[in-house]
Design a protein around this nucleic acid. Structure first.
Lengths: 184, 184
DNA sequence: ACGGGATCGCAATGATCGTTGCGTTAGTGC
DNA sequence: GCACTAACGCAACGATCATTGCGATCCCGT
């Protein structure tokens, strides 16, 4: 009746544990290059009954989208050094390092293969993080690149190399991208 | 014993027709957002017996990689207007238009989900096309950006928006990327 | 034309998947 | 603590998948 409860949804306790186990199982199986990623397989790995997965997620695509969402919307601390360039360099290097991890990369590829929802989930909060840093600079100096430009120049190449290449970019390379956005 | 024949591989006639039918079936099913992409389903759509697919491709992942390879390594005419900027603008707009097509996009996402081989196949010959245009400019004026830079600035954002976003870039936007590579 | 061998169709089989009805467990608010 | 009910486990089922042996087809070089 009031607000928080509604019609008993139940996010804690065993449900949360099952959810965590399933997510971990997906991550493990996906990074192991298993070509047979099905709900029963995930269930067996997670020590959960397959029926649970069918009821909670319905399909592999939705499960992958959910896993990707909760993996990439982690609470990342946005750098705040006082200098936009330094912030962006640190942030870009951090993103490049993250997506270069084989396990993360495998999850991204799988989520992308699951459809548009899963694909978009791989960006996580990164555009908003970028927007936050740029907004701070705008308050500070009155001038800053648009978020759109920053996404194109930083996120574009980093994700491209990771996802569509067999050689993901290094953190140092990612730092160098900032020069394209902020001519010295 | 000479060279071209080796041990009777057989690329023409019915084999070629079956291959074409299967490729078309995959493209149709993938663009139809079918979440159940299995070899029997593809076989039924292509009017071919499932056994054939199991023997020739073995798995959905390998089939998708093959389809992506032959789809994205098409013979594209590289623009040659005499001006690097014009060449790149035309080429970037063309690439952006291609990857914005829902059918192409669906195939890319599926191929990416199939693993690294399929993911890399989605780039096709585009890096080499870029290299060709840049090399021409280098011969012409002695100076040109590196292929690496051009890939980062052009291919990166175009693919990023298409694959990891629900709003692929427009051709006009893609033309604008050239300014980042070639300051006016 | 013609023979060899690669490729395909067919059929049968075991394994796995996806779904559903029902009973049990265990969060959640009182 | 107690009742309510969401969430899970269990078992059975039909459907589909993946594999294999065998015979027919037809591409390809001679």
């Amino acid at each position: 009746m009031t607000s928080p409860t509604r019609t008993g949804t139940r996010p804690g306790g065993r449900s949360a544990r099952v959810r965590a186990d399933v997510h971990r199982a997906v991550a493990e199986l996906v990074s192991a290059q298993e070509d047979t990623l099905t709900l029963p397989v995930v269930a067996a790995r997670a020590g959960v009954h397959p029926t649970t997965l069918y009821r909670r997620w319905g399909s592999v695509a939705e499960l992958l989208a959910d896993v990707a969402t909760s993996r990439f919307s982690g609470d990342v601390v946005v750098p705040d050094t006082g200098s936009l360039r330094a912030d962006l360099e640190r942030w870009a290097a951090s993103v490049a390092t993250d997506v270069a991890d084989p396990e993360v990369l495998a999850l991204m590829r799988a989520a992308i293969g699951a459809g548009e929802v899963g694909a978009c989930a791989c960006r996580g909060d990164r555009e908003e993080q970028l927007a936050a840093m740029l907004e701070r600079e705008r308050v500070r100096s009155g001038r800053a690149p648009t978020v759109e430009r920053a996404v194109d120049v930083l996120l574009g190449p980093i994700y491209f190399r990771a996802v569509l290449t067999d050689r993901p970019g290094t953190p140092e390379w990612a730092r160098g991208l900032v020069t394209l956005l902020l001519p010295e």
